[in-house]
């Protein structure tokens, strides 16, 4: 694997994470439990879509085949996607959506913090912009997880169920492979495994405040970030997201 090939994979991982999660969060628009949450979720989704444009834009540039961020988002198939499985699982109830957001935001904020000192200026610049947004995402999702975990009996139960369901998807964010080794060697991005300790401390602190119990098992589903085996859910998401581009090839919108 050449450095540019690894770099492309890394950029797709970043951009596909924000693309797919942004899409999932946008599904809430008009359906949230209260107006203020509806507006806040839309802001989160908008930030993620904006970050996608930057990551996939750069991916297209590095790839050198003249593809735009839209080409990459709308014209690849499931096996080309490099997002972690966590972000493609369905929204479930509001509790699961916010728990997923929190588990991702915590990783995202730590990752972006490291990327701000990337040896690649373009990566550092995207990370600098995104990290401000994500710091707020984390603050908001963390507070909501605490509020609902330590709310009523029902909200506590639902949040624990959400955590139990999502926890097996956490480990994939810290799996390292040859792409990561290449990126770390080039000083472009950290080895994901090196983020785990900070992550566990952060997540542990918030979940304790939320009176929730982290499952014992460290079992991790994987296959998203290398595209080997996504969940069945991603294909359905893509059939919606890509429908117009696929049905009317070559049209401009």
């Amino acid at each position: 694997m050449t450095r540019d090939e690894a770099f492309l994979q890394f950029l797709l991982r970043m951009g596909d994470n924000t693309l797919i999660l942004g899409h999932r969060v946008s599904e809430w628009c008009g359906h949230a439990p209260v107006l203020e949450e509806d507006i806040a979720l839309a802001n989160t989704a908008l930030d993620l879509i904006g970050q996608t444009q930057m990551w996939l834009g750069l991916a297209g540039e590095v790839q050198g085949e003249g593809k735009s961020a839209d080409d990459l988002a709308f014209l690849r198939d499931v096996w080309d996607f490099r997002n972690v499985l966590l972000v493609e699982v369905p929204n479930g109830d509001f509790g699961r959506t916010l728990m997923r957001q929190f588990l991702f935001d915590a990783w995202h904020s730590i990752m972006l913090g490291r990327l701000m000192t990337s040896s690649d200026d373009r990566v550092a610049a995207i990370a600098a912009k995104a990290s401000k947004e994500v710091a707020y995402h984390l603050e908001r999702s963390g507070d909501t997880v605490v509020g609902l975990g330590d709310g009523t009996e029902e909200s506590h139960r639902r949040m624990q169920e959400a955590l139990d369901y999502l926890w097996p998807y956490v480990g994939e964010m810290f799996a390292s492979d040859e792409v990561d080794a290449e990126m770390a060697a080039a000083g472009i991005a950290p080895d994901p495994a090196s983020l785990r300790e900070e992550y566990d401390a952060l997540v542990g602190r918030v979940l304790r405040k939320a009176t929730l119990t982290i499952p014992d098992s460290r079992f991790a589903h994987k296959g998203g970030r290398n595209g080997r085996m996504h969940t069945e859910h991603l294909g359905h998401l893509l059939t919606q997201m890509q429908w117009l581009q696929r049905a009317y090839p070559g049209a401009t919108w």
Binding site: A40, Y136, E139, G147
Partner: peptide, 8 residues
């Protein structure tokens, strides 16, 4: 939460 909602 009011402060956060105000931001949003």
């Amino acid at each position: 939460m009011a402060i956060k909602n105000a931001r949003d």
